[in-house]
């Protein structure tokens, strides 16, 4: 019983994967020795070294502590895999292991510092921050998101009602997104991103804030996308969600692929690993 690790129990409500229906197709995503390095401004790894003596020097040291420093973070250190049409892949790993960064590189939103990523069609990433433009209404965000995804104005208007209905936000659609709850924003983003069936959809923790009903609906949407030969990536800390939604899982640890295989096996191994690490207090 590996599910005991999960904080949320909602995921257990999900109906099981409808496996076997989807035949895996040609490669849709090829990742070849991907490296990503970040640059963080205004920080120093060792801001305070030897504490300076004297009041004046302390003051100067403190105010210069964050001046001119650039920290490089090597978040992804050589990830390679091939994904295929009709496949849904869960990505697991501890915080800071490079999962989200990998997805952003897959989506073409950050540039690899080394290696390459090849993707079929236009990828769509559902990130942690679900809001596109905070100040604007949900309706405007639907238009902006749809147009950015390459739909025409008419196509967006055509799908508008469907998007609002799927997001289940009712009259809130005419209010600025500052008034939305995290779950509402996430639902709207999910609805926008899947309005045009994407070739490659990446979901980065975007479902974590949704309620059980929404998660079930989004799982169905993911299945639908797979059936239409899309490829779906899911980053989640809920192993039950990964098992329910994914056929395959990749475990990323310290920027490297530690394990790649059937979702069942990888989540089990990952669970074993985290339980061992959290020590006997947990077990």
């Amino acid at each position: 019983m590996t599910d005991e690790f999960d904080v949320e129990v909602d995921a257990d409500d999900l109906t099981p994967m409808t496996d076997g229906e989807v035949v895996l197709g040609d490669p849709s995503v090829v990742v070849d020795d991907l490296h990503v390095t970040y640059r963080i401004l205004g920080t120093r790894r060792k801001a305070v070294e030897a504490a300076p003596q004297g009041r004046m020097r302390k003051l100067v040291g403190r105010s210069l502590g964050s001046t001119g420093g650039v920290t490089e973070i090597h978040a992804v250190r050589g990830v390679s895999f091939v994904a295929r049409h009709g496949e849904s892949i869960g990505i697991v790993g501890t915080n800071g292991s490079g999962k989200s960064t990998t997805l952003q590189a897959l989506a073409g939103l950050i540039q690899p510092s080394q290696g390459s990523v090849y993707v079929a069609g236009i990828p769509s990433l559902l990130g942690v921050s679900a809001v596109l433009v905070r100040k604007l209404t949900g309706a405007r965000n639907i238009m902006i998101g749809g147009l950015a995804l390459g739909l025409t104005k008419d196509e967006v208007e055509e799908r508008f009602d469907e998007i609002v209905e799927f997001a289940d936000i009712g009259d809130f659609v005419h209010l600025p997104m500052t008034t939305y709850s995290a779950g509402m924003a996430a639902r709207l983003r999910f609805a926008i991103s899947t309005a045009a069936v994407p070739d490659v959809l990446m979901i980065d923790e975007a479902l974590a804030t949704g309620d059980a009903a929404f998660r079930e609906r989004s799982r169905q949407r993911v299945d639908e996308i797979r059936r239409q030969a899309g490829t779906v990536f899911v980053v989640s800390h809920s192993l039950a969600s990964i098992k329910a939604m994914c056929t395959r899982a990749i475990w990323i640890d310290k920027g490297l692929v530690r394990m790649d295989g059937p979702a069942e096996d990888v989540t089990a191994a990952y669970h074993e690993h985290t339980r061992a690490r959290s020590g006997p207090a947990k077990g």
């Binding site: 040609d26 490669p27 849709s28 995503v29 090829v30 990742v31 070849d32 390679s80 091939v82 590189a105 897959l106 989506a107 073409g108 390459s116 990523v117 090849y118 993707v119 079929a120 990828p123």
Partner: peptide, 13 residues
């Protein structure tokens, strides 16, 4: 990987 990408019409991100 580059050959696979070329063969299946993938483009580089």
């Amino acid at each position: 990987p580059a050959e696979i990408a070329e063969r299946y019409g993938l483009h580089q991100m």
